[in-house]
């Protein structure tokens, strides 16, 4: 398993996470259904406005999924930042993960590490987390 993602999208996600820090940033990159290719970046408001939690606002969530339906898209990447811990799915992340087809990207903006050094991708299926390679194109 591998996530292929453009350098532009990677850079945009970092910009967004650094701007939101110390709160968590979150969003998706949509792609055509079945393509496994993330093409359309949609930053989302973290309705929790929290350094320890993120959640898409419920109205935003509905509009997002309606757009996916209208455009024959799906969430290829679902990303969020951890602002004081490592870029690895937490128990909460695993409990909430509900898109078995998505690449769950986590990045860390914690201050103890070099800036922009932790960008990782995982599959989360039925509570099982599997890390995968990230190829930046």
């Amino acid at each position: 398993m591998v996530l292929q993602i453009s350098a532009k999208h990677v850079s945009e996600i970092w910009d967004e996470a650094e701007a939101a820090h110390p709160d968590e940033a979150c969003g998706v990159i949509a792609g055509a259904i079945g393509s496994d290719t993330p093409t359309r970046h949609i930053p989302m408001v973290n309705a929790a406005h929290s350094p320890t939690f993120y959640e898409f606002e419920s109205g935003d969530l509905l509009r997002l999924y309606r757009e996916f339906d209208d455009r024959d898209e799906e969430p290829v990447v679902i990303y969020h930042s951890h602002t004081s811990t490592e870029a690895h799915p937490s128990r909460t992340d695993i409990a909430y993960a509900s898109e078995p087809g998505a690449h769950y990207v986590l990045i860390s903006t914690r201050e103890e590490i070099a800036s922009r050094s932790e960008f990782r991708s995982f599959r989360i299926i039925d509570g099982v987390v599997t890390e995968e390679e990230v190829v930046i194109t």
């Binding site: 929290s50 350094p51 939690f53 993120y54 959640e55 898409f56 419920s58 951890h82 509900s98 898109e99």
Partner: peptide, 11 residues
């Protein structure tokens, strides 16, 4: 009626 799982999590 639309059912949607939350997209959420936390550290």
């Amino acid at each position: 009626i639309t059912i949607l799982p939350a997209v959420a999590g936390g550290c």
